[in-house]
Amino acid sequence: MLLLTLNILFVLVAIAMIALILMQRGAGASAGSGFGGGASSTVFGARGSANFLSKATKWLAIAFFAITLFMAWYATHQAVDPVADTDLGVMSQVPAAPAAPGAVAVPEAPSVTPEVPAAPDAQPDAAPARDSTVPAAPAESAPPAEDAEPPAQTQ
Rank of each mutant, 00 (worst) to 15 (best):
L2R: 11
L4G: 14
T5S: 10
N7S: 14
V11G: 07
L12W: 15
A19K: 07
I21G: 12
L22S: 14
L22R: 10
M23Y: 08
A27N: 09
A29N: 12
S30C: 12
A31D: 04
G32N: 01
G32C: 00
S33H: 03
S33Y: 08
G36H: 03
G37M: 03
F44Y: 04
A46N: 11
A46E: 11
A46P: 01
R47T: 13
R47K: 12
N51I: 09
N51T: 15
F52D: 06
A56E: 04
A61N: 01
A61M: 06
A63M: 00
A63L: 02
A66M: 03
A66K: 01
A66G: 02
T68Y: 04
M71S: 06
W73M: 11
Y74P: 00
Q78T: 11
A79D: 08
P82S: 03
V83G: 09
D85P: 05
D85N: 13
D85G: 14
M91P: 03
P95N: 06
P95C: 02
P95M: 06
A97N: 13
A100V: 04
G102D: 01
A105E: 07
V106G: 01
P107M: 02
P107K: 08
E108V: 02
P110S: 06
S111F: 09
V112W: 03
T113A: 09
E115S: 04
V116C: 06
V116R: 09
P120H: 14
P120W: 12
D121P: 01
A122T: 10
Q123I: 12
Q123V: 09
P128K: 10
A129M: 07
D131G: 01
S132M: 15
V134E: 05
V134H: 09
P135T: 12
P135H: 08
A137N: 12
P138E: 09
E140L: 15
E140C: 08
E146C: 05
E146P: 02
D147S: 11
E149A: 13
A152I: 10
Q153G: 14
T154K: 14
